[in-house]
Amino acid sequence: MDSQEALALLSRLRSNVETVLLGKSKEVELALASFLAGGHILLEDIPGTGKTTLARAISASISGTFRRIQFTSDLLPQDVVGVHIFDADKRSFTFSPGPLFANIVLADEINRSNPRAQSALLEAMSERQVSVDTKTYPLPDPFLVIATQNPFELHGTYPLPESQLDRFNLRLRLSYPDRESELRLIRENTLATSRDGLLPVLVPEQVRHLRALVERVTVRDSIVSYIYRIVEATRRHPLVRLGASPRGAIGVKGTSQGLAFLSGRDFVTPGDVRRTAPAVLCHRIFLAGEPAGGAPEAEAGEAILSEILEAIPAPV
């Protein structure tokens, strides 16, 4: 598969997703870039803005396995990861895989579950394997977690801890669609039907191939140092309690590569970095004196990041 073919595939994937999620091409583009970079996605906004639709559209476009886990406060780690059960016939314990064993996992309302169940995802998301009792089971490749949460309703929720948030490559905030798109939505009311009618355009093998191609996208030294300076600035900012992690820096680079690839380029420009940095870094910086996880913190984080992006001289 050369890059021409890859681009054709990607444009089909993109149009596939955009048919069900109207007027959100920027967010779709970022989500696909993260998908190409192998980064998990956290979708965050009020209910009814299409978070689940986006997750399902991406998964439906790939002919891999798809599982959905509805996170509730009584969810247990075993319900997510799987459990050893005693096989009476073989007189031994056999592993019964949980819903995590799939190519794409949709973790719906992730902040509704207790921290135990949330942290069951930790190993899976970073090492792409799960350990149950004494055994370790590898997860399928590609493996992608798409989680959704509603930050505005904090009652009865468990905000994601820093370590968990850091595992997500990207946090996207889907706001209300613009006027035209919403009018179209109301008029056509295709929400229920269209996403079921999506045809897969990619097989898992092709996804692995695309990822290899994305990794080969050139990132010049000036861009690397630009990313470093942005990440460094989040750590020095006086209002920030905890700055972005090295994983965040790697995430910016990978997602920028994905974005460049989606735009048909084989190199990353500073513009790619400027577009990805807010989505990749905002949920990784924690402000001093703000309650964690709330919508105000997210907005303040975005303001700080845009200030940093304005202040750091971009390479020309």
Binding site: S222, R229, R236, P315, V316
Partner: peptide, 13 residues
């Protein structure tokens, strides 16, 4: 607070 200059070791414009 912010590192100065454009990227170090970068070729001149």
């Amino acid at each position: 607070r912010y590192p100065r200059g454009t990227s170090e070791g970068d070729s001149p414009l």
